[in-house]
Simulated scan of single mutants.
Amino acid sequence: MNQTQIEFRNVSFRYADDQPWVLKDVSFTIRSDQSVAIIGHNGSGKSTIAKLINGLLFPDEGEIIVHGTSVNENTIWDVRKKVGMVFQNPDNQFVGTTVRDDVAFGLENRGIERIDMIQRIDSSLAAVRMKDYLLHEPHRLSGGQKQRVAIAGVLAIRPDVIILDEATAMLDPKGRQEILTTVNEVKQNHPLNLITITHDLNEIISADRVIVMNDGEVWLETKPRDLFTKEEALQSIGLDVPFSAKLANELKRLNIELERTPLDQKELLDALWTYHLKT
């Protein structure tokens, strides 16, 4: 049975009393069976949402419920057992001198037995294809490898929810693709909620649902494929669709209708081939 995992109830937030509101009366729910992308331009409030879910910040108004627990100063440690975060800069998360020590850190803090700890370290590093780097120093890894280790550290504590907060923003295209592949594999093989915070619409194609933020408010909730049909509206709030959707939208304006809006280049090629066979 699908249950609500995360709920925002009329949440408003600002960083200081004399500052503008970063979030304004935001409400949404995320079910336990969903992978959700939260997108928006810089300053739209999307990263603030991530910090509020994990209890790094608290709302000025409204309430946040995580797996049945209201997030507040008295419950943050219980909430953080259920929610893991991977930040934009993995160097800010490393505390161990080796990859193994770093993944072990969160487990030691939770008092996990050594036998269980060893098993979790091995399985989490295997899940992100970093088991061969067990004794490597984290700062000597590539950007993509560092983020994979950061994901392994979160996986090891077995949270109900993993939040990727602009986790690919500092990576080159190769590193970005490594992380997207890793994330998709993790989602397929582990029963957890995945929340992706990003401004890059190329990263949302595997999400079940998208929440679009604009100026601190929920602008739209929809599915990725439906979102990509709204190219002009997205451009008006500082976002743009991937190339495959952009080309499909342009073809539509030329009265060349594909069966559906493609999510990526493979779907675009398949749709063009299907159209060619029909004509």
Score class of each variant (00 low, 15 high):
residue 99 V to Q: 00
residue 127 A to N: 08
residue 169 A to C: 05
residue 170 M to E: 14
residue 87 F to C: 00
residue 167 A to H: 15
residue 143 G to P: 05
residue 138 P to S: 03
residue 136 H to P: 08
residue 91 D to K: 02
residue 105 F to C: 03
residue 147 Q to S: 06
residue 156 A to R: 05
residue 84 G to H: 07
residue 147 Q to A: 04
residue 94 F to M: 07
residue 167 A to W: 15
residue 133 Y to V: 02
residue 113 E to V: 09
residue 163 I to L: 06
residue 164 L to V: 10
residue 110 R to A: 12
residue 120 R to I: 04
residue 95 V to A: 01
residue 86 V to C: 04
residue 133 Y to N: 09
residue 98 T to A: 02
residue 112 I to G: 03
residue 89 N to Q: 10
residue 94 F to E: 10
residue 155 L to Q: 04
residue 145 Q to G: 00
residue 162 I to G: 01
residue 124 S to H: 09
residue 163 I to A: 00
residue 132 D to S: 15
residue 104 A to I: 09
residue 150 A to H: 14
residue 118 I to H: 09
residue 137 E to V: 12
residue 159 P to F: 08
residue 86 V to I: 12
residue 154 V to D: 01
residue 125 L to E: 06
residue 101 D to F: 13
residue 119 Q to P: 00
residue 85 M to N: 11
residue 100 R to K: 15
residue 151 I to R: 09
residue 106 G to K: 14
residue 108 E to T: 14
residue 130 M to W: 03
residue 149 V to M: 11
residue 85 M to F: 07
residue 169 A to D: 11
residue 140 R to L: 14
residue 168 T to Q: 06
residue 122 D to F: 14
residue 95 V to N: 07
residue 140 R to K: 11
residue 153 G to N: 12
residue 151 I to H: 07
residue 137 E to K: 11
residue 144 G to D: 06
residue 87 F to A: 02
residue 167 A to D: 10
residue 137 E to A: 12
residue 93 Q to P: 09
residue 105 F to P: 03
residue 115 I to N: 01
residue 160 D to F: 11
residue 103 V to C: 08
residue 137 E to L: 03
residue 156 A to W: 13
residue 164 L to S: 10
residue 159 P to V: 07
residue 87 F to I: 08
residue 109 N to W: 05
residue 154 V to C: 06
residue 92 N to R: 10
residue 123 S to I: 02
residue 89 N to P: 08
residue 109 N to R: 05
residue 134 L to Y: 14
residue 144 G to V: 13
residue 131 K to I: 15
residue 154 V to E: 05
residue 155 L to M: 02
residue 145 Q to A: 04
residue 146 K to R: 11
residue 88 Q to A: 01
residue 97 T to P: 02
residue 90 P to E: 05
residue 152 A to I: 14
residue 147 Q to M: 03
residue 138 P to V: 01
residue 84 G to C: 04
residue 163 I to M: 04
residue 146 K to H: 07
